[in-house]
Structure formats: structure tokens, C-alpha cells
Lab assay of single mutants.
Amino acid sequence: RNRTTFTSYQLEELEKVFQKTHYPDVYAREQLAMRTDLTEARVQVWFQNRRAKWRK
């Protein structure tokens, strides 16, 4: 699989949710996936990576 390149809009939306919660539930991830036109799996992985970056 190729690396996903996120648009500025997608990143904005993802970051907005990340500010509210670092662990969005499956419903929140589904909503976000629909809004950003990404798969729920991509959203889930983005949050995993974002949490790792945040911990550093």
C-alpha cells in the first residue's frame, strides 16, 4: 500500500478531533472518515501515529 497523503482539510479535521480526544471511539472515527473521505482504518492509524508523536 502506498503512503496516504492527507490534504490540509483532512489534517485540520483530524487535528480538531485530536484536540478534543486522543482516543476517539469507533463512532467518532466513522464520522470523521466520512467527513474527510478517508477509510476508518486510515483514521485509526493516523490517531495511533499522532499519539506517538504527541508522547515524544
Rank of each mutant, 00 (worst) to 15 (best):
F47V: 01
F18K: 01
Y9G: 08
K20T: 12
L14W: 00
T4L: 11
D37R: 14
R35W: 06
R50H: 04
T7D: 05
F6M: 13
T39H: 07
H22R: 07
A28L: 14
F18G: 00
T36Y: 07
H22P: 14
R29T: 14
R50D: 02
R50L: 00
S8Y: 07
R55N: 14
F47H: 01
F47K: 02
T5C: 10
V45M: 10
R51D: 01
W54D: 12
Y27Q: 10
A33V: 07
Q44R: 11
Y23H: 10
Y23P: 00
V17S: 11
R29Q: 07
K56I: 07
V26K: 05
A33N: 01
L14D: 01
Q44I: 07
W54Y: 13
L11A: 10
Q48H: 14
L38R: 03
E15N: 03
E13G: 01
K20L: 10
F6H: 07
V26H: 10
Y23G: 03
A28Y: 13
T21P: 00
Q31H: 07
E30V: 05
N2M: 13
P24I: 01
D37M: 10
R3D: 15
V17N: 04
R3S: 15
T4V: 07
K20G: 07
V45S: 13
F6W: 10
T7Q: 05
L11H: 09
Y23Q: 04
T39K: 02
Q31R: 11
K53C: 11
K53M: 10
Y23M: 04
H22M: 15
Y27L: 14
D37I: 04
Y9P: 03
L32F: 03
M34H: 07
Y27H: 15
F6I: 12
Y9D: 08
L38G: 02
Q19S: 10
R29W: 02
K20N: 09
Y27E: 14
D37Y: 07
N49P: 02
E40T: 14
R3G: 13
W54E: 15
E12Y: 04
F6A: 06
M34C: 13
L38E: 02
N2H: 10
F18V: 04
A41D: 11
T39A: 07
R55W: 07
V43P: 00
T36F: 09
Y27A: 15
L38S: 11
E15H: 02
D25K: 02
Y9V: 13
W54S: 11
K20V: 12
L11E: 15
T39D: 12
V17F: 13
D37T: 06
T21V: 08
E40Q: 14
V43W: 01
Q44W: 04
D37E: 11
D25P: 04
K20A: 08
Y27R: 13
K20Q: 14
D37F: 13
V43E: 01
T7E: 12
L38P: 01
V26S: 13
F6V: 11
A41N: 09
N2R: 05
T21K: 03
L38V: 04
V17R: 02
R35H: 15
N2E: 15
L11G: 05
T7R: 04
L32H: 03
N49Q: 10
R50F: 00
A52R: 08
Y27V: 13
R50C: 03
A33K: 07
L14Q: 00
V26D: 10
E15S: 04
E13Q: 08
R51L: 05
R29I: 15
W46D: 01
A52G: 08
R3E: 14
N2V: 08
Q19M: 09
M34T: 10
R3V: 04
V45C: 15
Q31M: 09
R42H: 07
Q10H: 03
E40N: 14
R55G: 13
L11D: 12
Q44E: 15
K20D: 10
E40V: 11
V43Q: 02
Y23I: 02
R50K: 11
L32Q: 00
T39W: 02
A41Y: 09
D37N: 15
E13D: 03
Q10V: 03
T39Q: 05
T5Q: 15
E12W: 04
D25W: 00
V26C: 06
Q48E: 13
R1N: 15
Q31S: 11
L32G: 00
Q10N: 03
D25R: 01
R1F: 06
F6G: 03
K16I: 09
E13T: 07
H22F: 03
Q19A: 12
L11Q: 14
V45N: 13
Q31T: 08
R55M: 06
V43R: 00
L38Q: 03
N2C: 03
Q19W: 07
V43F: 06
D25L: 03
T39Y: 01
K56R: 07
H22K: 12
